[in-house]
Computed example of a mutant assay.
Amino acid sequence: MKIGIILGTKDPEVVYNAFRFGVLALRNEHKVKIFLINHGVDIEDIDSPAFNVREQIFLFTKKQGEILSCMKSMKAHNRKESEVCQSHSMEDLLALITDSDKVLSFG
């Protein structure tokens, strides 16, 4: 199954659980893409002792999960492209939604 996740927050607990779910889905042989929008593009700045977001992002990408970031949100939040956050358009978000069997939204 193809699963699309839309992540629009930088709340550590929500981001942690979105990626934790993504990792679980990948381990169960599903294809997963996460689209970061709004404050979701700020996930690399999260430093939480309670929720190890960086570890979940690492596991997600190691398992071949794909992360897409909204170009306009990145500009609005003064974000540069990185290994984790690479700019994509609304057309890419539309493609994620139309190509996915299921779409989830976190935050």
Rank of each mutant, 00 (worst) to 15 (best):
S73H: 06
D42T: 10
G22N: 08
V32I: 11
E66T: 10
V53E: 03
C70M: 02
N78C: 14
P49E: 15
D99G: 07
N17R: 13
T61S: 00
Y16R: 05
G4A: 04
V23K: 06
Q56D: 09
M1T: 07
H30K: 10
Q86P: 05
G40A: 12
E66N: 07
R20P: 04
E83F: 11
I3Y: 00
D47N: 10
G22I: 09
D99P: 06
F60E: 10
K62R: 13
Y16P: 06
R27V: 09
V32K: 07
G22S: 06
N52Q: 00
T98N: 05
K102Q: 07
E55H: 02
M71D: 15
L7K: 00
D47T: 10
M71N: 15
Q56N: 07
S100P: 07
I67K: 06
G40E: 11
S82C: 02
E91C: 11
V84C: 01
E66P: 07
L93D: 06
F19Y: 07
L7I: 02
T61V: 02
A18V: 08
L26P: 03
L36H: 11
E29W: 09
N38L: 15
C70E: 00
V41Q: 09
I5F: 14
G22T: 07
L24V: 04
G4C: 09
V14L: 13
I3N: 00
F51N: 01
K2V: 09
L104C: 01
L7C: 03
V53G: 01
N52H: 00
Q64N: 14
F106Q: 08
L24F: 07
A18H: 10
D45M: 14
N28G: 12
N52G: 00
H30E: 10
G8K: 09
V53T: 01
F60Q: 12
K63F: 14
A76S: 14
S69K: 06
A95M: 15
E44C: 01
R20W: 04
N28F: 13
A25G: 02
L7F: 03
P12Y: 03
Q56T: 04
E91P: 10
V84D: 00
I37G: 04
C85Q: 13
I57T: 03
I43W: 06
E13S: 05
E55Y: 01
H30L: 11
Y16L: 06
V23Y: 06
V103I: 14
E66M: 09
L68A: 01
N17H: 13
L94W: 13
V103K: 12
I5W: 15
K63W: 10
L7Q: 01
S89G: 12
D11V: 14
I34P: 05
L104V: 03
V15T: 10
L68P: 04
F35R: 04
K2M: 12
I57D: 01
I5M: 15
N28P: 11
E66Y: 07
I6M: 13
K75P: 05
D11F: 12
K102Y: 08
S87H: 08
K33R: 15
R20M: 06
K62P: 02
V23W: 06
F106Y: 13
H39I: 12
S82R: 02
L26Q: 03
K2E: 11
V84T: 05
V32G: 10
L36G: 11
E55Q: 02
D99A: 08
I67R: 02
F19P: 02
Q56R: 09
L59G: 05
A25F: 00
L36C: 10
I37W: 06
L68R: 03
L24E: 07
D42C: 12
